[in-house]
Design a binder for these strands. Structure first.
Lengths: 198, 198
DNA sequence: TCAGTTAGCAAACGGTGTTCACGTTGTAAA
DNA sequence: TTTACAACGTGAACACCGTTTGCTAACTGA
């Protein structure tokens, strides 16, 4: 039953946006009264919280399929970043729910959900490999993690809110995205040669 | 009178968030009836649109003060980026209204407001200077513009939605932000020496 | 003086998330 | 077989929301 509510809700949300779907409409879709939904969910936030979790599970799955088996961590970051952006463009409602809502508005227990943490740790691990390989020069992992995440996240967000389309002639987005990814992943200034050090 | 409504609205919005302030509450704050507000604004969106414009005017002003007179375009980008993030953290409601709402939800005429375009062009000009100086290697301006904007925008957004605080030990944010800015602005792989060409 | 504009308001419309008292139904123990 | 009880579903209501409508006053210019 919970399942039936969630499925109806998911379908409506994806089609019409989270804000444009009311409890009453979900209830209508499954031909129940609005009050019935509250037998299965404390409130609307809890429904969103569950859907967010499912979104993360699907996201992590897809990312693993796409990038999981790539040996080169830098290439893994590139494919992962492309996946992040593609997900944002293909599933804007889910992207918004998972990555754009305030954490405390959707995460009821105050801790990030397990699946969202898994996706973070996979990303972080790739970054740490790159740092160890000196891909970006002499730099700490935290800095790289949030720099790169900010980069793809910001791009996805700017596109989804219509800010890129307005400013760029109507060329295909994909090549631009790839150039941007390439630029954000460019090698850093490499540490000096051994001779230079003491 | 429009002014009085806007001022009351602005005060409430900044304090309580745009979503938590209703027309009725604004009307209450100036001791008018809700219907009176509709003499001066077509709807709530129009109020937000006007406030957005004012926000941009103030933003451009501040950015000019901070970075306008810096000769080195790369340093100008750094200070400008820091200003963008600082603005986002200091005025999260305005940041959200100006940079996070869907364009067509707040921009009534379908074209971006003048002041928001001015801020874009100032930024873009600095990037073009950098590209000409070969700061980032052989790369087109569009790529750099959206890479850097995505970088600071994404960072501001991740911080404001609580995603950085959750993942990073409670150290001071400022040093991390500066390291991230430095990383995002790192020099690119430089074009080959003249001897290498031809 | 009289017409026309302007400013403000009470009431209502249709919507929202949520709660509550009330039945109905199915099951399991007495 | 009867009784008790929990689970499920509902209609009506509460307190909001943005917005519209019809109505008064008050002011303005001719």
């Amino acid at each position: 039953m919970r399942r039936r509510i969630l499925d109806a809700a998911k379908q409506l949300f994806v089609k019409e946006g989270f804000d444009n779907v009311s409890i009453r409409r979900i209830a209508g879709a499954i031909e129940y009264s609005p009050a019935a939904i509250y037998r299965y969910f404390r409130n609307k936030r809890e429904m969103l919280s569950v859907l967010r979790d499912e979104g993360f599970k699907q996201f992590v799955e897809t990312q693993k399929e796409r990038a999981g088996s790539i040996a080169d961590p830098l290439e893994r970051l590139r494919i992962g970043g492309r996946g992040y952006i593609r997900f944002a463009l293909n599933e804007p409602e889910y992207f918004h729910l998972m990555f754009c809502t305030k954490c405390d508005e959707v995460d009821l227990e105050g801790k990030l959900a397990v699946s969202s943490m898994e996706s973070y740790h996979l990303f972080r691990q790739s970054v740490e490999e790159c740092v160890e390989l000196n891909c970006f020069g002499d730099i700490d992992a935290d800095t790289v993690v949030f720099s790169l995440w900010s980069g793809v996240h910001g791009l996805a967000h700017l596109i989804n809110t219509g800010r890129v389309n307005v400013l760029v002639n109507d060329l295909d987005l994909d090549p631009l995205i790839d150039r941007i990814l390439g630029f954000q992943l460019r090698p850093g200034p490499h540490v000096k040669n051994f001779e230079d050090k003491s």
